[in-house]
Design a protein around this nucleic acid. Structure first.
Length: 859
RNA sequence: GGACCGUUAGCUCAGCUGGCUAGAGCGCUCGCCUCACACGCGAGAGGUCACUGGUUCAAGUCCAGUACGGUCCA
């Protein structure tokens, strides 16, 4: 349906027009009849839908889309799914605030429950502050309800941006197939011994009341203070110990010094008495004690930090927990204390760490056992990346997946997996390797939260009603996904839940990364559809941000290593960040924040994509509206240049006509070279280079080549010469539309529809050899010589402040003999373009110089 | 403290395996309504390639170090 070019080509409305068309035509539909070799599969990052839409989304997803479109044009069928990451804490927090609810897993499901608030406001329209407790199923229903809205906003953005995803492949990380895949993978890990549970001290967030994993930690510099405490040696002498956490004194189980520290060797095997509580603890020795720090002796508490955990484990010390899961001091004083000490401990019960510290400092001061004043310092403290209170270390039963943090062999094997992946850019691999080398424990996957994939296990209860953790009750894979809080294990009935001799469900859910580490399996319908899975796995490409190499990328590699004994993908493409130079200007423009949708409206999707695709792989890129304007100009120019070329004659028939003029041949030769460069760049996932090269060619094509052949194409030198121009224009336009299609899908599709059949996006990537055949043996340098000479001719007019239409009565071109020889081949084109009446060429000069006699001004 | 990345025109960046006078776009200056495009066209000015050494016939490009900026991890 060649519609021909409109009188006034415009970008307006192209997004809606073509997005709808592509949807109706299933343009980007994955062809699942194709074998693995003909497939290009992409492990799309599922965006966190409860977060806001921002420029980073547009940026990195555009990069992937250009690759997808290129691969599709090379003849691959592209498996390009979209997923929504709606699983996890961000959604929970939003639901709590939005609906005014809180999850209490002990409550029963309430049919037809309506939340008390909406958008954070109660029925009276005022902010709703309190939170109503509801059951886990009710809570999850509300999560589902809210994410649905969020997901619409994302889908809308992706369609406007022109992502060529196959929307029939959509998944969500909380949907049934994700839960099934996630639980199945966990059970497989369990069966193979790769997942295990352990009662152990682990990092604990007291606000969210959940354990957190190493990958979710961050250090934050915090103010603190050294307190010097007076302990007593058996001799009755003082032993001064510095600590930043005096409130943990009741949890003190030993004091430690370095084995080589001679000052403390005499006290080996002796006991030290703690202040305030008068508990006798052993003097122990360990390399991690720093002789330079304070007095060289530290108190070991269960648990102040990870070093305490190491000491406790390696020195076989007892545990005296004092801080509970809510971050407050627990009811029961350590058994070891005397009645008198327990009474003093009573003053701490129920207090937060902060107030307990004040209380204890007071006690120490009263006893005269605080030496001097506390000395203020700042030091790094571990936080949950989403939390705002320091992590405590609490002993709890948790599930782990082995990740090489405790086994050297596995560690090395996972590092080795990195070599099976081609990294773009290559240096990103070192981040992967560094992270694995720095692991200090296995992957803690259980979370004491609600909106996530439940750990699919139950435990039988003994006669006393205590769970028998050693033998979890495992569901049949065919029944997955399950929720152990409502489903019942085989051999039991619902009435036995929580009863002695009955069963209980594992109350925890899995870490969100435990699910998203399976995106290739989820998207590829692992085990649900083996035929499909085998066509797409291992995936060709994982695009993602470099900030989540340690989490998403690594955890995906771990799962693939165990489940498939392979790397999950062949290529990992790490995108950079958007730097925001506007942040400085933001204060000026009074926080006039531009949303991605606004930008797409303002500049057009192609223009925004152009900006995004200019950012090289892995490189942080400035948010730059200027680049979007440039992109817009490019798209508009493409429309206009195409319209012009079509005005010359029937391009479709011109495609098969011979190209006879030297300049036309030279241009096509250059185009063949460009095509090769772009192919190479795209094969190396370097979309930015492909764009840059194509753009440079395109502008010289419109500014020089078109100007040079314009008159001839109109017929100034006869039909054959005109026909050659038409044939070259048709081939060039055809080729450039294809080369630009990955970047400017809307403008290229629009132009394509004017004179070609089908969609440019399902057409073939251009064939450099066919272009070379059409070009014959013409020297590509003809294009340069003609262009540069034309430029000099123009300059004589510009410097005379005359119009470019001004006739040149006589022009003398001096240049090297070599270049004059080339110029003579195209002198007619150059003369016509420069409006030169008489062109004299003189060889033997050192460089190009033009003298021109302009026609007199007629006013 | 460790690892990695970067430092080229006022701004944003190219410059791939070292090779003739270092490029583009934006911005700026000047000019042009030229029959595809004024959402346009043409021309111009503007750079001791962060610094110090080294390798080489030749270094923006390779090596070592320094400084500054950034990211990730401790």
């Amino acid at each position: 349906m060649n519609t021909g070019a409109p009188d006034k080509p415009s970008l307006e409305g192209l997004e809606t027009k073509w997005a709808d068309q592509w949807q109706n035509d299933d343009t980007y539909r994955f062809d699942r009849s194709v074998g693995r070799d003909g497939v290009f599969s992409i492990d799309t990052p599922p965006p966190t839908v409860s977060g806001s839409l921002h420029m980073g989304h547009i940026f990195s997803y555009t990069h992937t889309d250009t690759i997808a479109r290129y691969q599709r044009m090379t003849g691959k069928t592209v498996f390009y799914p979209m997923g929504w990451d709606d699983n996890g804490l961000p959604t929970e927090r939003r639901v709590q605030n939005y609906f005014g609810v809180r999850c209490d897993p002990s409550l029963p499901y309430e049919d037809g429950f309506e939340p008390p608030a909406s958008e954070g406001k109660g029925p009276d329209g005022k902010a709703f502050k309190q939170q109503v407790s509801i059951s886990r199923p009710n809570f999850i229903e509300l999560c589902d309800r809210l994410v649905e809205e969020d997901e619409k906003a994302f889908e809308n953005l992706w369609r406007s941006l022109g992502l060529s995803v196959d929307w029939s492949l959509l998944y969500a990380t909380i949907d049934e197939r994700s839960r099934r895949a996630s639980q199945r993978a966990f059970l497989r890990n369990l069966a193979r011994g790769e997942a295990y549970q352990q009662e152990a001290p682990s990092l604990w967030d007291v606000t969210f009341q959940t354990a957190v994993a190493q990958a979710e930690l961050e250090d934050r510099e915090q103010p603190s203070a050294y307190h010097t405490l007076r302990f007593k040696l058996p001799t009755g002498d003082d032993l001064l110990i510095d600590t930043t956490r005096p409130e943990l004194l009741p949890a003190c189980v030993a004091v430690v010094a370095h084995p080589d520290d001679e000052r403390y060797q005499p006290f080996k095997g002796q006991t030290i008495t703690t202040p305030v509580f008068g508990v006798e603890v052993p003097m122990v020795f360990h390399e991690l004690a720093d002789p330079e720090k304070g007095t060289g002796v530290a108190m070991i508490c269960t648990f102040g930090d990870l070093t305490d955990v190491t000491w406790w484990r390696e020195l076989n010390l007892p545990a005296r927990a004092v801080i509970g899961r809510n971050g407050r001091f627990i009811e029961d004083a350590p058994e070891v204390m005397s009645a008198d000490a327990k009474e003093r401990y009573g003053r701490l019960v129920g207090k937060t760490v902060f107030s307990a510290k004040k209380e204890l400092v007071e006690m120490l001061t009263d006893d005269g056992d605080l030496v001097g004043e506390p000395r203020a310092i700042t030091h790094p403290v571990k936080f949950f990346e989403k939390g705002d209170k320091p992590l405590e270390i609490v002993s709890s039963r948790q599930w782990y997946i082995r990740n090489g943090g405790r086994e050297a062999d596995l560690n090395a094997a996972l590092i080795e997996r990195g070599n099976e992946i081609t990294w773009h850019p290559p240096y990103m691999q070192s981040r992967y390797t560094n992270w694995i080398e720095g692991l200090n424990g296995d992957w803690l996957i259980s979370r004491q939260r609600f909106f996530g994939v439940p750990i699919p296990l139950w435990y039988s209860l003994d006669d006393a009603g205590e769970p028998i953790y050693e033998k979890p009750l495992v569901p049949d894979e065919a029944t997955l996904p399950i929720d152990p809080s409502t489903d019942v294990p085989d051999g039991y009935d619902a009435s036995q839940r929580g009863e002695p001799g009955g069963f209980m469900g594992d109350p925890d859910i899995m870490d969100t990364w435990a699910t998203s580490s399976l995106t290739p399996q989820i998207a590829g319908l692992w085990e649900d559809d083996d035929d499909l899975f085998d066509r797409v796995y291992p995936f060709d490409m994982r695009p993602q941000g470099h900030d989540i190499i340690r989490t998403w990328l690594f955890s995906t590699a771990v799962r693939a290593h165990f489940e498939a004994d392979t790397a999950p993908w062949r290529h990992a493409c790490l995108s950079g960040w958007i730097l925001d130079p506007d942040r400085k200007k933001m204060s000026k423009s009074k926080g006039n924040v531009v949303t991605p949708i606004d930008l797409l409206d303002q500049f057009g999707s192609d223009a925004v994509r152009y900006w995004a695709a200019s950012g090289r792989p892995g490189t942080d890129t400035a948010f730059d509206e200027g680049q979007m304007k440039v992109g817009r100009r490019l798209a508009i120019k493409l429309l206009n240049a195409s319209k012009f070329a079509m005005g010359m004659g029937d391009l479709n028939s011109a495609l098969s006509q011979p190209v006879t003029e030297p300049l036309d041949q030279a241009m096509l030769g250059r185009l063949a070279t460009l095509t090769d460069e772009c192919t190479k760049a795209f094969d190396d996932f370097d979309y930015a280079r492909a764009l840059e090269r194509t753009e440079t060619f395109f502008w010289s094509f419109t500014d020089d080549y078109i100007e040079l052949v314009k008159n001839r194409a109109y017929g100034s030198r006869g039909d054959e010469a005109a026909q050659s121009a038409h044939a070259a224009l048709a081939r060039a336009l055809d080729t450039m539309l294809r080369l630009l299609a990955p970047f400017l899908p809307f403008a290229t599709e629009e132009v394509w529809s004017w004179w070609q059949e089908g969609s440019v996006h399902t057409s073939n990537w251009p064939d450099a050899n066919a272009l070379r055949d059409a070009a014959g043996s013409a020297d590509g340098a003809l294009v340069d010589v003609a262009g540069q000479t034309l430029s000099e001719l123009r300059r004589t007019k510009t410097e005379a402040k005359r119009s470019l239409r001004t006739e040149i009565v006589k022009a003398t071109v001096n240049d090297t003999a070599e270049r004059i020889a080339l110029l003579d081949q195209v002198s007619e084109d150059v003369s016509e373009a420069g409006a030169v009446k008489e062109l004299v060429t003189v060889g033997g000069a050192a460089e190009l110089a033009v003298e021109a006699e302009l026609a007199p001004e007629d006013d």
